[in-house]
């Protein structure tokens, strides 16, 4: 399937993926702003927002954010399955999110301004 894409189509796909990737991190942090959550909850919200298609996308991102000190987690036993990791923002994460919010607002303005 991929092989049949033309150059232009590939370029479009690539740009879309880049945009989504940038926004995805911001959205994950926004979800966690209101309190801790475990991956399935985050996934549900992201799917609802049509930001991700497959769940596998989330796990590497969470791991990298955690390793960057932006997120932290605690274990909690689950009745229906294996223990769950509940993620929450760290202090650095909160500051990071504030900066992202500013940047986002600037970007929205920029897009609005340029696309008028």
């Amino acid at each position: 399937m991929h092989c049949n894409l033309t150059r232009v189509e590939m370029k479009i796909e690539n740009t879309k993926a880049q945009m989504r990737k940038g926004v995805l991190e911001y959205c994950i942090l926004s979800i966690l702003k209101s309190g801790e959550a475990y991956p399935s909850e985050i996934i549900d919200k992201l799917k609802e927002a049509k930001l991700i298609v497959v769940e596998g996308t989330l796990y590497p991102l969470l791991t990298r954010l955690k390793n960057a000190g932006i997120l932290t987690y605690r274990w909690e036993e689950s009745k229906s399955g294996p223990p769950r990791k509940y993620y929450q923002l760290t202090k650095i994460g909160e500051e990071f999110l504030k900066e992202l919010e500013t940047t986002w607002n600037e970007l929205v303005k920029a897009v609005k301004l340029t696309s008028k």
């Binding site: 769940e55 590497p60 969470l62 390793n67 399955g81 769950r84 990791k85």
Partner: peptide
């Protein structure tokens, strides 16, 4: 570097989905 972590998270999720 995060291979182990990612794998265990993904496996955990798969286990969760199977349990359901």
């Amino acid at each position: 570097e995060e291979c182990e972590d990612i794998m265990s998270d993904i496996e955990a999720r798969i286990a969760e989905l199977f349990s359901e």
